Amino acid sequence: MTDKNPDPTHIRLAKRVAEQLNCSRSTAEQFIEGGFVSVDGQVVEAPGARVRPDQAVAVAPDASLLELTPVTLLLHKPVGVEAGLGQPAQGGAGQAAHASRSQGAPQAVTLLNPASHLAEDASGIRVLQRHFKQLECFTPLPTEASGLVVYTQDKRIARKLAEDIESLEQECIVEVKGDIAPNGLQRLCHGLSFNGRPLPPIKVSWQSETKLRFALKGIRPGQVPAMCEAVGLSVVAMKRIRIGRVPLAKVPEGQWRYLQPWERF
């Protein structure tokens, strides 16, 4: 339905819908991008698609611009993929890993597509192409770390993350190796310094023989590796599993889910 040299008898879908509904072209485009318009029984989300006069163009009876709300996507970023490092520094648990930017590493935003959507997503939101446009990330995670990264179209959520990321508790699982020093766990919880400044109390506990759980606020790049090194441990891997009250939940690496309406950071 899209040709470089279109047949003059074919018209843009947005124009056809505008004529059928007697509405503005911009309103027609919103209905199309909202997934409410079908051509010959197949939903088409591209306002610029061209249709023939004999093709049946239908607008869903329940079409409403009220449904066109912005969305927030929660991605489980794999190791080896960059996320948000092109944004102004906002802090974030993942930055605790070595934050050197890997040249040529793929961008996490490329994983946001219908094919990588979590099949068991409980949000009930219908996946649309417009959900992958104008996304912002305020929760950067370096290439060496994995875990939760937030991409949003919602200006309210963007403002919340930009302004409050320092005060939101972030939880991460850190795989370590080495022998921890005597009283090392207690020192991780309170008593260490970073960049010449004493660290506030932090929640640290063992998840297994090789994995520590960190829950902390205002984390700085390199902080967790430096803390571990101070007690005789070195970081093998790091995974962020929660930001504020929003968990990664059971999302496999490389997949994403929608933030549900009731979830709040």
Rank of each mutant, 00 (worst) to 15 (best):
R101E: 15
F214Y: 05
Y258K: 10
A83N: 01
V174E: 05
E29M: 06
L248G: 02
M1W: 07
R50A: 11
N22W: 03
P106A: 08
H190S: 14
A28Y: 07
Q87A: 11
Q260H: 13
T143P: 00
K250L: 09
P70F: 09
E136H: 14
R257D: 05
V109T: 13
G41D: 09
K133I: 08
T152C: 10
H76Q: 01
G84F: 03
E136M: 05
E171H: 13
E29Q: 13
Q153F: 10
A226H: 11
E229I: 12
R213S: 10
E175C: 07
I11P: 00
Q134L: 08
L148H: 15
I165P: 04
L65A: 03
G232N: 01
G86W: 05
I125G: 00
V236C: 05
Q186R: 14
R197Q: 14
P114V: 00
I173G: 01
A46R: 10
V57H: 00
I32D: 03
D3H: 14
S38G: 07
Q170P: 11
K203F: 10
L233I: 02
Q95K: 15
T2I: 15
L212D: 10
P114K: 00
L148T: 04
A60M: 02
R12P: 09
E263V: 03
Q103P: 05
F138T: 00
V17W: 08
Q30V: 01
I180W: 06
P142N: 14
A122L: 11
R16F: 09
E175N: 06
V79N: 01
S193R: 15
